[in-house]
Write a protein that binds this DNA or RNA. Structure first.
Lengths: 124, 124
DNA sequence: CCGTATCCAGAGAGATACTG
DNA sequence: CAGTATCTCTCTGGATACGG
């Protein structure tokens, strides 16, 4: 817990690849929704401000890595249901820990940014 | 904690902005390094496979948000030290939770991907 | 040593149109 | 309804050269 730190974690390319596919905006939002309940494709589109293309890509990635199950539940007209997997659910805890962290610190961060921008004259 | 979920977190643009600036590859690696000890600019470059440009941008962002302190410790030749702040340290726990998660599940994810690629014929 | 400036290439995301 | 196919544009990030 302190600065001399024994708990160093070695960050391998495998870590980065895995996390990179899961920590983008749309993946987090989709996983949150599917943790609530199974959803249909256009249902997700209404819940999340994402384009068709990006939602498709996100769902494919999540499906490929085993976080999400895709099931055709009807054929005429076609209906598809996306459902979180047990593996997908294991992500919820660490992700929500991060969201809680941002909840707790967002104001301090805003203040730091305002101070920085004020000091430098920058605005970006 | 279960699927019927009472602990729903509302993900605002503010959350996304904060997390987006902190969860990229270089930020995570830099924060990990600085949690170990204060570092110099070129010292970080030797420790992390990042270009000058990206390291500069990463450090600026982390400094702006208050995660990192930048101090000129000498002038001739110029020497600059980067140091983690108390706010920066609060990120370590949730980030390492995520890294532990990827450690624990990376193999299962690899297997899921292999299965998916095998089933679809895709490779990417 | 610690950066900034410039150019350039590839990935990602939006808009739009179309299909089983 | 649930996607696929383009096209375009921006944004990121690497390479390189130069400056305080």
């Amino acid at each position: 817990m302190d600065d001399t730190s024994s708990g160093r974690i070695d960050i391998t390319p495998a870590h980065r690849e895995v996390l990179g596919q899961v920590l983008d905006t749309w993946s987090v939002l989709v996983l949150e929704e599917l943790c609530e309940a199974p959803r249909r494709f256009n249902q997700l589109r209404r819940l999340i401000p994402v384009t068709q293309k990006s939602l498709t890509a996100t769902l494919r990635r999540l499906e490929r890595s085993g976080f999400v199950d895709r099931t055709v539940i009807s054929d005429r007209p076609v209906a598809v249901e996306y459902r979180i997997t047990p593996l997908g659910k294991t992500l919820r805890e660490p992700i929500e820990a991060l969201l809680r962290w941002s909840d707790e610190h967002v104001e301090e961060i805003e203040r730091a940014r305002a101070r920085f921008d004020d000091a430098t004259g920058d605005h970006g």
